[in-house]
Amino acid sequence: MKCMIKLIGALCIVFAGTMLGMYQSLQLSARPRQIRQSIQCLQRLETEIVYGVTPLPQALHAVAGAASGPLRSLFEAASRGLMGKEAASMREAWEEAMASNWSHTSMKQAEKEIFLQLGTLLGISDREDQMKHLKLAVRQLQGEELAAAEEQKRYGGMWRSLGLLSGVLIVILMY
């Protein structure tokens, strides 16, 4: 009986280890994907601003409509912040939206910096200028995407096996 419980416990530990590894590798693969989505969002925002001359609250709303997951909520929240009665500035609305939604994404500090920087610039200049800022942000994100993809390739498999193996290691040590 005692042996049985021990075995079940050991299986649990191995399972947990594997899951932890899986989660980490999933995060690694989600990051480049979300960066790619962000790039698409910003490109769409650029189209709305430069060619559609859509006012920012509506432009952000349109971008949110085309996005999915945490990015959708991010743009949605920013748009809502601007449309609210108590007129917040773009910077405030954006920072608030970032604060409540960023943690749901798999993106890291570097991307966050790019996004925050963008929030201080959106809407406050002419179209040409807006286009430049958005293009720059897209280029920066593309750089991050490459790095993230590289990281995923290198560490993705490692995390998966590391999770399983560490689970096994703990079990061995316990026995």
Partner: peptide
């Protein structure tokens, strides 16, 4: 910013 609905670019 408030006068232009956060969109200076649409008021060129």
């Amino acid at each position: 910013e408030l006068l232009t609905n956060h969109s200076v670019y649409s008021f060129e």
